[in-house]
């Protein structure tokens, strides 16, 4: 999702981004104008022709947006069938999802629902919309945060293995080193290298929190000299790498985990909307 930077330094937009943004803007204006006309000419309630139209459009957009997930799981078939690129589906998912939320509110007349099913549907729609927006925000921010401040890029699934590698190297260094180095390893480095750790501090300032924790190494190095100073510097490098891996471990986890908030609930929402449509048609 991060925008590419061109030769001139200006942000270069992804293909189709402007088209989708313009389409969304036009659709938004049309919807708002329709809503205004609705308020002037009639009531904004679910049961009249306006409300039914909003509900039908919202359900259609929801189904369309949900197909993004299907499209992601059928890459080869999608290419063979000419269903369009994944990015175009993503844009439809994003903008269609936002319009779905607006249409859902218009369908309910911007009022809170009454029935159990209505409440479930309303809460799940809001939840799905908000988690979708959260995911969008995380995808915009985390790659930039990880790419700009940290000296290490690492695959999330390899982090435990690489932490173990760092732990081995630190132990090796400690065993062959002098007392100050051993003490520093035992007190500060070894506990940190025990396992990858997530911390909320990385959400606030990924690089700043690492720098503050390395000050002790700078201080110790200025007191020691020769081989001991070099060992401390080596330990500091291992320690920094571990902390950067923790930052990745934390932020990449967030980047992956928000989907657990979004996808299962959206599937439940699809089921509830199906029940709602069924009951409306039946009754």
């Amino acid at each position: 999702m991060s925008a590419a930077v061109g030769m001139s330094g200006r942000r270069r937009e992804r293909p189709g981004a402007r088209l989708w943004r313009n389409l969304f803007s036009v659709a938004l204006v049309i919807l708002l104008a329709t809503g205004l006309a609705n308020l002037l000419l009639s009531e904004m309630v679910p049961g009249n022709i306006w409300g039914i139209a909003y509900g039908t459009a919202a359900a259609t957009l929801m189904i369309g947006a949900a197909f993004f997930g299907v499209r992601r799981r059928m890459m080869h078939s999608a290419l063979r069938l000419g269903l369009g690129g994944s990015r175009q589906w993503l844009y439809f998912h994003l903008y269609g999802g936002l319009l779905f939320l607006l249409l859902m509110f218009m369908h309910t007349g911007f009022r809170l629902p009454e029935g159990v099913l209505g409440w479930w549907m309303w809460l799940l729609a809001v939840w799905t919309g908000l988690t979708g927006l959260l995911g969008l925000a995380l995808q915009q921010w985390i790659p930039k945060a990880l790419g700009s401040g940290l000296g290490l890029e690492v695959h999330y699934d390899r982090i435990p293995e690489l932490v173990a590698e760092l732990r081995d190297r630190a132990e090796e260094l400690s065993e062959g080193g002098h007392d100050p180095v051993r003490q520093l390893h035992a007190r500060k480095v070894a506990p940190e290298l025990a396992a990858p750790r997530r911390s909320w501090r990385y959400f606030i300032d990924p690089t700043g929190s690492i720098h503050s924790r390395l000050r002790e190494f700078d201080y110790l190095r200025s007191l020691l000299g020769g081989e001991e100073a070099r060992d401390v510097e080596a330990l500091e490098g291992i320690y920094r790498a571990k902390l950067e891996m923790d930052a990745h471990y934390t932020l990449q986890w967030a980047l992956r985990s928000w989907l657990y908030l979004h996808v299962p609930i959206s599937l439940v929402l699809v089921a509830i909307v199906a029940v709602h449509i069924g009951t409306v048609l039946y009754y």
């Binding site: 989907l259 657990y260 996808v263 299962p264 959206s266 599937l267 439940v268 699809v270």
Partner: peptide
């Protein structure tokens, strides 16, 4: 694999239905 996320959602939807 994140299939469990999808299966979890489908299971929840099934329970609800």
């Amino acid at each position: 694999s994140r299939s469990r996320m999808v299966w979890g959602g489908l299971a929840l939807a099934g329970v609800l239905l």
